Simulated assay, not measured.
Amino acid sequence: MKNINLRLICLAFSLSLSVLATAQQTLSLGQNNYQSRKGVVYNKEVAFNFKPHTNGLAAGLQFGNIRAYNRTSYWGLEIGEIKHVRETRQNKSNQIAALEGAFRGFVYGKQNNFYALRATFGEKRYLSEKARRKGLALGLDYSAGASLGILKPYYLLLRFVPEDFNRNFRSERYSIENESRFLDINSIYGADGFSKGLGQSSFMPGGHAKVALHFDWGAFDEFIKAFEVGIMADFYFKKVPIMIETEAAPNVQNQPLFLNLFLNVQLGKRS
């Protein structure tokens, strides 16, 4: 009887070791597959970016390839406006508005609207293994690319000149010839509409780069819910003429480099 019990104990012990070894091997294989699989559960992602920054606003689309559980490479396109730090929007006084009618607010001393079309290539990396599970995952996002700057002339509605008897104002862009009237606050009614000057736009090549902290709720959920905070730089090969540089405003200078802090909100889907 003792021999039978000993045999049963040895058999049970052997079976236990066998099951334990199999389980460990399966777990190990599963972990290796998990860590080496590209994309883990998903392979692609598409996200909409909404990016307010220090001196402007941008929006665009981002297309990502999920390389591993902690690394995603992407490319994207976005367009946004960059404003000069000295831009201040103002309106005519209430008394003048009541007498002359309501007009759009305007930026005194501005000669061009400036927009940036950016082609971006970058990567985001999650900094901890919490990215594997649901919850807030922390990562680092960095990118760079080429930019196309778009200068659109800024038009103001100015009080008529003596030889113009058909209307009380007319739309004009800045020039050396009309500088005195363009900068005369008493001659300005307001800004013209957005479409005015689109056909006279000019272009400036440049580049951009950014680095940001990336916060993602459920880094591998189907739906993307993330935001970023960081710093971005736009640079061009010459000064961007947004404002009028004149002796009347000695501290106003245009620059070829724009540094901005930004907040980026991302919504999208993985597949």
Rank of each mutant, 00 (worst) to 15 (best):
K152H: 07
L267A: 14
Y34P: 00
F114N: 00
T72L: 06
T88P: 03
L213P: 02
K130T: 03
A97Y: 09
I82G: 02
N3C: 05
I9R: 13
V41K: 15
Q255M: 01
Q90W: 07
F13R: 13
M232R: 10
F194W: 04
R104W: 07
L11M: 09
V229M: 07
S180T: 12
N166H: 05
K38E: 04
H214P: 00
V40F: 08
R125W: 11
S28M: 07
A102N: 15
I185H: 06
N186W: 06
R173D: 11
G80D: 10
N33S: 14
R125F: 02
E87Q: 01
S171A: 15
R159K: 14
F215G: 06
K44Q: 05
K239R: 09
N49I: 14
F237E: 01
L183R: 01
R167P: 05
L77E: 06
Q255N: 11
N94E: 12
F215W: 05
L257Q: 01
E78P: 00
L183Y: 02
E81K: 09
L257K: 01
F121M: 12
A102I: 14
Q35A: 10
P153I: 10
I4E: 13
S16N: 01
I231F: 01
Q25P: 07
D234L: 03
L29D: 11
R7Q: 13
I96C: 02
D216S: 09
A209L: 00
W75C: 15
L117W: 10
L20M: 10
K110V: 07
P153N: 11
K152S: 09
T120R: 12
R181P: 00
L157R: 14
Q95K: 14
Y155H: 13
Y142T: 00
E123L: 09
A137C: 02
E177G: 00
L257P: 04
R89H: 04
G105S: 15
Q111P: 08
G135Y: 10
L140A: 06
L261R: 01
L117E: 03
A119V: 01
G197C: 06
S28H: 12
R118H: 09
F114L: 04
Q25H: 15
K225G: 08
A248D: 10
K210S: 14
F48L: 12
S187E: 10
A21E: 08
N251R: 15
R104V: 04
F63E: 08
N94A: 14
E100L: 04
N33G: 08
K124C: 01
E177S: 07
F106R: 05
I66S: 02
S93L: 05
K134M: 14
